[in-house]
Amino acid sequence: NCLEGLIFVITGVLESIERDEAKSLIERYGGKVTGNVSKKTNYLVMGRDSGQSKSDKAAALGTKIIDEDGLLNLI
């Protein structure tokens, strides 16, 4: 459970895995996936064609922004 207690938001199109697979992977390792960035969000996983508003909010809140490889490296 290397992601225990961590909260993730996924945005954009992921290249190597589907969004549902990424969500399942995060949950399997103890993390939680939500739909919107908040002060409780630990990581924003940004894929291709992701919206600017979520990354702006993450930056404003100090949320770590990672890509798909960054997510896989956490596991």
Score class of each variant (00 low, 15 high):
residue 1 N to E: 06
residue 1 N to L: 06
residue 1 N to T: 06
residue 1 N to S: 06
residue 2 C to H: 14
residue 2 C to S: 11
residue 2 C to G: 03
residue 2 C to Q: 07
residue 3 L to I: 05
residue 3 L to R: 02
residue 3 L to N: 05
residue 4 E to Q: 11
residue 4 E to S: 08
residue 4 E to I: 03
residue 4 E to T: 10
residue 4 E to G: 01
residue 5 G to S: 03
residue 5 G to L: 03
residue 5 G to C: 03
residue 6 L to C: 06
residue 6 L to W: 03
residue 6 L to S: 07
residue 7 I to C: 10
residue 7 I to F: 13
residue 7 I to T: 14
residue 7 I to E: 15
residue 7 I to A: 10
residue 8 F to E: 03
residue 8 F to W: 01
residue 9 V to K: 03
residue 9 V to D: 06
residue 9 V to L: 03
residue 9 V to F: 04
residue 9 V to P: 02
residue 9 V to C: 14
residue 11 T to Q: 10
residue 11 T to K: 08
residue 11 T to V: 08
residue 11 T to H: 09
residue 12 G to E: 04
residue 12 G to Y: 01
residue 12 G to P: 06
residue 13 V to S: 14
residue 13 V to H: 15
residue 13 V to I: 14
residue 13 V to F: 11
residue 14 L to E: 05
residue 14 L to M: 12
residue 14 L to G: 06
residue 15 E to F: 05
residue 15 E to V: 08
residue 15 E to A: 11
residue 15 E to Y: 07
residue 16 S to W: 04
residue 16 S to A: 08
residue 17 I to F: 15
residue 17 I to R: 10
residue 17 I to K: 11
residue 17 I to L: 15
residue 18 E to D: 14
residue 18 E to A: 14
residue 18 E to Q: 14
residue 18 E to F: 00
residue 19 R to L: 13
residue 19 R to W: 07
residue 19 R to H: 11
residue 19 R to Q: 11
residue 20 D to L: 08
residue 20 D to A: 12
residue 21 E to D: 11
residue 21 E to W: 05
residue 21 E to N: 08
residue 21 E to R: 11
residue 22 A to M: 15
residue 22 A to E: 01
residue 23 K to C: 10
residue 23 K to Y: 08
residue 23 K to D: 02
residue 23 K to Q: 11
residue 23 K to T: 11
residue 24 S to L: 12
residue 24 S to C: 11
residue 24 S to Q: 13
residue 25 L to W: 05
residue 25 L to C: 04
residue 25 L to E: 01
residue 25 L to G: 00
residue 25 L to Q: 05
residue 26 I to D: 01
residue 26 I to G: 04
residue 26 I to A: 00
residue 26 I to P: 00
residue 26 I to N: 04
residue 27 E to Y: 04
residue 27 E to S: 05
residue 27 E to R: 09
residue 27 E to G: 03
residue 27 E to N: 06
residue 28 R to E: 08
residue 28 R to H: 13
residue 29 Y to R: 08
residue 29 Y to A: 08
residue 29 Y to V: 02
residue 31 G to T: 02
residue 33 V to A: 13
residue 33 V to L: 08
residue 34 T to A: 14
residue 34 T to K: 12
residue 34 T to V: 15
residue 34 T to Y: 14
residue 34 T to N: 14
residue 35 G to N: 15
residue 35 G to L: 13
residue 35 G to H: 14
residue 35 G to E: 15
residue 36 N to A: 11
residue 36 N to Y: 13
residue 36 N to R: 11
residue 37 V to P: 04
residue 37 V to H: 03
residue 37 V to W: 06
residue 37 V to M: 10
residue 37 V to I: 15
residue 38 S to E: 08
residue 38 S to K: 01
residue 38 S to P: 02
residue 38 S to T: 14
residue 38 S to L: 03
residue 38 S to D: 15
residue 38 S to M: 01
residue 38 S to N: 14
residue 38 S to A: 03
residue 39 K to D: 10
residue 39 K to R: 12
residue 39 K to F: 06
residue 40 K to P: 00
residue 40 K to T: 12
residue 41 T to I: 04
residue 41 T to C: 07
residue 41 T to V: 12
residue 41 T to E: 00
residue 42 N to S: 08
residue 42 N to Y: 12
residue 43 Y to H: 09
residue 44 L to N: 03
residue 44 L to F: 04
residue 44 L to K: 00
residue 44 L to V: 10
residue 45 V to W: 02
residue 45 V to K: 00
residue 45 V to R: 01
residue 45 V to G: 02
residue 45 V to P: 02
residue 46 M to R: 12
residue 46 M to P: 00
residue 46 M to Q: 12
residue 47 G to C: 07
residue 48 R to A: 07
residue 48 R to D: 06
residue 49 D to H: 13
residue 49 D to A: 10
residue 49 D to R: 12
residue 49 D to V: 08
residue 50 S to M: 08
residue 50 S to Y: 14
residue 50 S to R: 09
residue 50 S to L: 06
residue 51 G to R: 13
residue 51 G to C: 15
residue 51 G to N: 15
residue 52 Q to P: 13
residue 52 Q to W: 10
residue 52 Q to A: 09
residue 53 S to A: 13
residue 53 S to N: 12
residue 53 S to F: 13
residue 53 S to E: 15
residue 55 S to F: 15
residue 55 S to Q: 14
residue 55 S to D: 09
residue 56 D to V: 12
residue 56 D to H: 10
residue 56 D to Q: 13
residue 56 D to T: 13
residue 56 D to G: 10
residue 57 K to M: 13
residue 57 K to C: 09
residue 57 K to L: 12
residue 58 A to I: 08
residue 58 A to R: 06
residue 58 A to C: 06
residue 58 A to T: 06
residue 59 A to K: 11
residue 59 A to Y: 11
residue 59 A to G: 07
residue 59 A to C: 09
residue 60 A to R: 14
residue 60 A to P: 08
residue 60 A to G: 10
residue 61 L to T: 09
residue 61 L to E: 08
residue 61 L to P: 08
residue 61 L to M: 12
residue 61 L to Y: 15
residue 61 L to C: 07
residue 62 G to L: 01
residue 62 G to V: 01
residue 62 G to F: 01
residue 62 G to Y: 02
residue 63 T to I: 15
residue 63 T to Q: 05
residue 64 K to E: 09
residue 64 K to H: 10
residue 64 K to R: 10
residue 65 I to Q: 03
residue 65 I to S: 03
residue 65 I to K: 04
residue 65 I to T: 09
residue 66 I to F: 04
residue 66 I to T: 06
residue 67 D to E: 05
residue 67 D to W: 01
residue 67 D to R: 06
residue 67 D to C: 04
residue 67 D to P: 02
residue 67 D to Q: 06
residue 68 E to A: 10
residue 68 E to D: 05
residue 68 E to V: 14
residue 68 E to L: 14
residue 68 E to M: 15
residue 69 D to H: 13
residue 69 D to S: 12
residue 69 D to G: 12
residue 70 G to I: 04
residue 70 G to P: 00
residue 70 G to T: 07
residue 70 G to S: 05
residue 71 L to Y: 00
residue 71 L to E: 01
residue 71 L to N: 01
residue 71 L to R: 01
residue 71 L to F: 08
residue 72 L to N: 05
residue 72 L to T: 04
residue 73 N to L: 05
residue 73 N to K: 15
residue 73 N to I: 02
residue 74 L to C: 04
residue 74 L to F: 03
residue 74 L to D: 02
residue 75 I to H: 03
residue 75 I to N: 02
residue 75 I to T: 03
residue 75 I to Y: 03
residue 75 I to M: 07
residue 75 I to K: 01
